[in-house]
């Protein structure tokens, strides 16, 4: 197990180089020109060309990539075309907001998903199980965007309880977190239920039950630890789509995170920012999955004993 983890850590730089190259090529093949986006439709072509040149975009692509990689190796991700700020600084400003939003969304998702899924599995085919299964389907299918507007209309416009947008106070975090939590909530809930049902049908559970272990203790002490590893895997795997969801959620709520930064960067074709944010997002997904593996190796009784 440890050898596999070390192997994955060692592979990390290779993965990052491959990803950086893919992102570099993809971004530069996006239709649209940063110089045109900067100068606007009223600009004459000579201005657009001059801006293009001053941004260094007319240099051979491989040389541009070389400059980008040399910088990236020492942590310099270049200068944003739009803000003229170092990309690293832009990311450092926005990243904590996304991290905070992501963590609170996952916290909500876990608080609802695991007990909900557990209860659904314990009372399979009961009323709660049916409500729960229906609810998770709805949660997973509701578009983030629409749900966000619904929350805003209800809690800010009608009830005046929560700030509509921005990041002025901790209460600003509530609606965006809830919006972002929908998808992982549904996923974690369903995964917990399915995994619990699989574990509950195993022989050792039957044995424990025969020994007279109570239902509560049976589920929490005997079944849950064995049911959690797949749930942790799903959390790690789902991070990518949560980051994707953050783009929409942050934009609607004016939450100043990476998703917000990314959507503006794509809109104006701010190549260095798109590349920088993508690298950070990819690195996050890889690291979180690595952490998920380590966590599984700690909590999974079978892995622990092997």
């Amino acid at each position: 197990m440890n050898a596999r983890l070390i192997n994955r850590v060692l592979m990390l730089p290779v993965v990052m180089v491959v990803v950086s190259f893919a992102v570099f090529v993809a971004v530069r093949h996006l239709p649209g020109d940063p110089a045109r986006m900067l100068a606007g439709t009223a600009a004459t072509q000579d201005t657009v060309d001059a801006v293009h040149h001053s941004l260094g975009l007319d240099r051979p692509a491989l040389r541009q990539y070389g400059t980008f990689m040399r910088g990236a190796l020492v942590g310099d991700l270049g200068i944003s075309i739009e803000s003229r700020q170092p990309v690293g600084q832009e990311i450092a400003h926005h990243f904590p907001y996304t991290l905070l939003l992501g963590l609170s969304a996952y916290a909500l998702a876990l608080c609802f998903g695991i007990p909900g899924g557990l209860a659904a599995a314990m009372f399979e085919d009961g009323i709660w199980d049916r409500i729960f299964m229906g609810m998770t389907i709805v949660l997973a299918s509701v578009p983030n965007f629409w749900f966000a507007l619904l929350l805003m209309e209800l809690f800010s416009v009608r009830l005046g309880l929560l700030p509509l947008m921005g990041a002025h106070s901790w209460s600003s975090l509530l609606m965006p977190s809830l919006t972002l939590a929908l998808m992982p909530m549904a996923l974690i809930g369903r995964m917990t239920r399915a995994s619990m049902l699989a574990v509950l049908s195993r022989d050792y559970i039957r044995t424990a039950r025969a020994r007279g272990v109570g239902l509560m203790r049976l589920c929490l002490r005997h079944a849950l630890p064995n049911a959690l590893p797949p749930v942790v895997t799903v959390i790690g795997m789902n991070l990518g789509s949560v980051i994707g969801g953050a783009v929409v959620t942050e934009t609607v709520f004016g939450w100043p995170g990476l998703g917000h930064l990314m959507i503006e960067a794509v809109r104006w074709r701010d190549y260095p920012v798109i590349e920088g944010v993508t690298l950070v997002a990819v690195l996050s997904v890889i690291l979180v999955n690595l952490v998920a593996d380590i966590v599984i190796s700690r909590i999974d009784p079978q892995a622990r004993h092997s």
Partner: peptide, 18 residues
Amino acid sequence: WIWSAEPSVMDMALHTGD
């Protein structure tokens, strides 16, 4: 000065006093 590209958010922001 604040901004939102979403017209319904602009509308709500005026109603809430944001």
